[in-house]
């Protein structure tokens, strides 16, 4: 029973194309996509900040994508079940990492954490590679639309 509950913590798997579709589905509002992993200490550290920012900025769609490998999926599910973020958390589908990185955005080096910010028009407006504070992400987002 417990594994089923934990499994429900994740929203599924994405490859670059299906992630793009999910970003597109939010057309009309800004989107922040954050890439992270449970083995990445700075990612884990910034996770509560992202939860707080997502809770405050209801005008923005937050999407979280873990790059954890299949063998780390139990740790990932447990982490997400415990944190209960107000945004969907996907796991990168198995496949070539380089294809995923370039498919998401050629400007992304593959570093985690990384947050990609998209405007309401669906265009990527900023790429924050490495550790960034919530205020830096919010600065990249700009003011909420009135």
């Amino acid at each position: 029973m417990i594994p089923l509950l934990l499994a429900a913590a994740l929203s599924g798997e994405v490859d670059a194309a299906s992630l793009r579709q999910r970003i597109e589905s939010h057309r009309g509002q800004p989107v922040v996509v954050t890439f992270w992993a449970t083995w990445c200490a700075p990612c884990v550290k910034e996770f509560p900040d992202l939860v707080a920012l997502a809770t405050r900025r209801r005008d923005v769609a937050f999407v979280s994508v873990s790059i954890d490998d299949k063998e780390d999926v139990v740790a990932l599910e447990r982490f997400v079940a415990q944190r209960k973020p107000p945004f969907p958390v996907y796991r990168k589908a198995d496949g070539k990492d380089s294809d995923f990185i370039d498919g998401v955005d050629p400007a992304w080096s593959g570093v985690v954490p990384a947050s990609l910010v998209y405007g309401a028009d669906g265009k990527r407006s900023a790429i924050l590679q490495g550790e960034h504070t919530p205020s830096e992400i919010e600065k990249a987002l700009g003011e909420p639309a009135r």
Binding site: A37, P42, S98, V112
Partner: peptide
Amino acid sequence: EAKAFGCTIKR
């Protein structure tokens, strides 16, 4: 050139 996931360089 070939990319991979990796840790951030803490600057």
